[in-house]
């Protein structure tokens, strides 16, 4: 098992180039319309949902039901040699702006692995897209439920 502490050690060895969505997840506050997942994909990858190829080489580790939507641990790994990979993108469909992060890889990283915490406005698929050096887009998704509470 890789703990977060281990992860930081790994990150220290081969740092990834990381770009993340700024600020908070907001529902409105005078901002323009919610960006659809299709539009977010187009903006970052040049193609919408139809351009993604579902792949079981990509594995998303995230809770099925989030303990808090404000802080959802997400871990993505891909069983693909790192030198074939250009970047990893993470999206959350239901967020106001679905784009969460872009992680660029170099062979120094050793493997395609990235762990972070994301905010989810509400129940949403969390998507990982791996952009290959040949331009193809491999993707996987997992639904994470954000719940107001429950009863046992």
């Amino acid at each position: 098992m890789i703990t977060r502490r281990d992860l930081f050690k790994v990150a220290g060895v081969g740092a990834v180039a990381l770009t993340v969505a700024p600020g908070m997840v907001r529902e409105s506050f005078g901002a323009p319309k919610k960006i659809s997942i299709d539009d977010a994909l187009k903006e970052h990858l040049g193609t919408g949902l139809s351009g993604l190829k579902e792949s079981n080489l990509i594995h998303i580790k995230a809770p099925t039901i989030a303990e808090s939507g404000a802080n959802v641990p997400v871990q993505v790994s891909a069983n693909i040699p790192v030198d074939q990979v250009e970047a990893l993108y993470i999206f959350a469909d239901a967020n106001f702006n679905p784009w969460v992060a872009t992680v660029e890889f170099t062979p120094m990283n050793g493997e395609v692995f990235f762990a972070t915490r994301i905010k989810l406005a509400k129940t949403s698929p969390v998507r990982a897209v791996v952009k290959m050096k040949d331009g193809s887009l491999l993707a996987a998704s997992k639904e994470v439920k954000v719940t107001v509470g429950g009863c046992g």
Partner: peptide, 21 residues
């Protein structure tokens, strides 16, 4: 909203998304 939320915790077709109450 709350009742729908609880209903999904009970009736989600995937047991990994149910809370078992």
């Amino acid at each position: 909203t709350v009742w729908e939320d609880v209903a999904d915790n009970v009736f989600n077709p995937d047991p990994f998304y149910q809370q078992g109450g």
